[in-house]
Design a protein around this nucleic acid. Structure first.
Length: 647
RNA sequence: GCCUUUGUAGCUCAGAGGUAGAGCACUUCCUUGGUAAGGAAGAGGUCGCGGGUUCAAUUCCCGCCAAAGGCUCCA
């Protein structure tokens, strides 16, 4: 009996029944066989050494395929588990999947504590086992047998996992002395794993439930070549140089003080200048879009948040009430601007002719984030949202929503965030108790978001359980230097707060109607947005945003006066320039300016002073030649326009 | 909040049971120099905070605070 195997290029080869993907690889070339980690058979990723099911199309997977990487890492997780079992007998195992960069295994060490001092021993053991070229053996087992095996082993975690599986779909993989419940697929043998690094250890709740036991999660990464591990580690080091917490200090943008409090950023003058420029940029765009600025206080009475639902939802987990001499009064720091904006809307009657009404506020809010969650500027306890609330009639929702999408995308383009993901954040499928409002309202809101996103041709991913408690969201997610996803822009459709606040407008029928609210923030928060902007630009901000656009460098102190003249001239033309008047050589001044990532350096010495010019040098570009301050001003303007031309 | 790790000068870091060191930054002086670090001198630290052990703690132990990487959470 022969079977026909179709390769990705369309060629069909004939093999004996029982042939494996690895055999196919070997028949093509030995070199290929050495690199095959697993194979996609009729679209399903399987072990390379598993017999092919019959006539099929296959794609051999190597390190260059994401699924190939996942296979290596998944098998590495098993290898790590084997090493751990050898080093720490009695360890129980949770789950050990491959992830974006490497793999982890959740383990229960029965009271033993593992720290990074133990990593070397685990790595060494893994290397030793890998060198044994242990074969990964797949075996399909009946559920009863699987239960028996892990009952005898005393591993309640695996038993719980088996409990959720159907009989007939359960498989074990064994390599060396270690057997695991696993769907696979796996490598042919452990020798494919050449370079091994245990990265970190963390606590992780079993099944992601904080009410259940916290297991020890060990993160690791492996590669088929040592060189690739070295390169990966070097890449991580490079990424750390873009960390906004580091650049924020180096570029004098912001700081924190233990005395002020964790998660309460202090913006330094340069950071403030950057932030103000972002604010003004958006304000201008919003004015064009028919928004009106409003201002609301930082605190409000408890009753406001009882009405909005925030009190019930977050009251216990937020900053606690502010008291006054009157013991019956309780004020809260505002965690959101929307309740205040609802009250502004309510302050006067509205006709359908006035809608949509768009209230915008750069509103600073305070949320008591869990201490373990605080992270630089991306997760803080006091931050400013570029918030706005649009009150519209039901049939205006979609058009308004689409306009907001345009605004968010314009902002992202202006700041060169090309790598974002649009995420539709919906309710938790199981637990509806976390949300307010009727199913009908939620259905309407979800439909509005889906339709608007679709009509805008936006590629979206859907995430359940990510909605706000009052409505679904369209979130714009961006990754930081280390690949962590953060929500920046957000747009939310809300049928619920208008109900709670009893918002109304008079329709053409002279009857009262309920408006629909759209919450939206293109940046999300200034803090988080600036953090991501720092990481994406590496501190080399777009010219229009740079806190300082140029630094004037006198060749010697003799030319400080000439430099001041140039500085005045540039200032008159709205170019932000400073002077380095230090008693240093020009080479030193240039080096320091380059390190400070200043966009332009203007050198002024005898020649320039006489000719009324400056010698311009671009950051990372070298000498751009002499020009007059006015010519330089034109250069700056051209560069800014070129950068914003795509808007 | 939970797990692991860390906390020494403005920054990056070394150090040891007997009250501390380097480089850079800073100040002063010399130098007035043409495109990525000129030279010299000086100043600067309650070794995160609070307890405990000890003749003696910054070092060992405990608690707290803060930070890092995760988990959970995220209006």
């Amino acid at each position: 009996m022969k079977i026909n195997v179709t390769l990705p290029d369309g060629t069909v080869r004939s093999y004996e029944q029982g042939v494996t993907a690895m055999d196919v690889a070997r028949s093509i070339s030995e070199g290929l066989a050495r690199n095959v980690l697993s194979a996609k058979v009729n679209g399903e990723v399987r072990d390379a050494n598993r017999p092919l099911p019959g006539d099929c199309s296959i794609q051999l997977l190597t390190w260059n395929d994401p699924e190939g990487k996942a296979t290596l890492w998944h098998s590495s997780a098993h290898l790590m588990a084997e090493a751990i079992e050898a080093l720490y007998p009695g360890t129980k195992f949770g789950i050990g999947p491959p992830i974006e960069n490497g793999f982890y295994y959740d383990i229960d060490l029965g009271g033993r504590v593992i720290g990074d001092g133990d990593f070397k021993a685990i790595e060494d053991k893994m290397k030793e086992l890998a060198a044994h070229k242990e074969v990964y053996v797949r075996r399909e087992v009946p559920k009863a047998e699987a239960i028996k095996y892990f009952t005898e082993k005393g591993d309640e975690y695996k038993l719980e996992l088996i409990d959720g599986l159907e009989d007939g779909t359960i498989s074990f993989y064994t390599q060396g002395n270690f057997t695991d419940l696993c769907r696979g697929p796996h490598l042919p043998d452990t020798s494919f794993i050449k370079a091994i690094k245990i990265m970190s250890v963390a606590g992780a709740y079993w099944r992601g439930d904080e009410k259940r036991k916290q297991l020890t999660r060990l993160y690791g990464i492996t590669f088929p070549k040592q060189k690739e591990l070295d390169e990966y580690l070097a890449l991580l080091e490079e990424a750390k140089k873009r960390d906004h917490r580091r650049l924020g200090r180096e570029l004098d943008l912001f700081t924190f003080s233990e005395k002020v409090g964790a998660g309460l950023p202090l913006w330094l003058p340069k950071g403030t200048a950057l932030r103000e420029r972002l604010v003004n940029f958006l304000k201008k765009a919003q004015e064009k879009g028919g928004y009106e600025q409003v201002v609301t206080p930082h605190i409000a009475q408890k009753a406001l948040y009882v009405t909005s639902g925030h009190y019930e939802k977050y009251g216990k987990d937020s900053f606690q009430p502010i008291h006054t001499p009157d013991p019956t009064e309780e004020f809260f720091l505002k965690p959101m601007n929307c309740p205040h904006h609802c009250e502004i809307y309510k302050s006067r009657p509205h006709s359908y002719k006035d809608l949509p009404v768009r209230y915008a506020e750069f509103g600073t809010v305070y949320r008591y984030e869990q201490s373990g969650e605080l992270h630089g500027l991306t997760r803080v306890r006091g931050f400013t949202q570029d918030d706005a609330h649009l009150f519209c009639t039901p049939d205006q929702v979609k058009a308004e929503f689409m306009k907001v999408i345009d605004l968010v995308l314009m902002v992202f383009r202006a700041l060169e965030f090309t790598d974002y993901e649009a995420q539709v954040s919906l309710r938790d499928k199981e637990d509806r108790s976390k949300y307010i409002g009727s199913d009908a309202n939620w259905a309407k809101a979800e439909a509005a978001i889906m339709e608007a996103a679709a009509e805008k041709g936006l590629k979206t991913v859907v995430e359940y359980g990510e909605a706000a408690f009052y409505g679904p969201k369209l979130d714009f997610m961006v990754k930081d230097a280390l690949g962590r996803r953060w929500q920046l822009g957000t747009i939310q459709v809300d049928y619920n707060l208008p109900e709670r606040f009893e918002l109304e407008y008079v329709g053409a029928d002279n009857l009262k109607h309920r408006p629909v609210m759209i919450h939206r923030a293109p940046f999300g928060s200034l803090e988080r947005f600036v953090a991501l902007l720092i990481e994406h630009t590496g501190g080399r901000f777009p010219l229009w945003l740079a806190p300082e656009q140029a630094i004037i460098l006198p060749i010697s102190e003799k030319f400080n006066e000439a430099a001041q003249g140039v500085a005045r001239l540039l200032k008159d033309h709205d170019i932000r320039a400073v002077i380095d008047e230090r008693n240093e050589k020009i080479g030193r001044k240039i080096r320091d300016a380059e390190m400070a990532k200043l966009p332009f350096m203007l050198v002024i010495g005898e020649k320039e002073a006489a000719a009324g010019t400056v010698a311009v040098r671009g950051h990372g570009q070298g000498d751009l030649g002499p020009m007059t301050p006015l010519q330089f001003k034109q250069l700056v303007e051209e560069r800014i326009h070129a950068g914003l031309a795509t808007l």
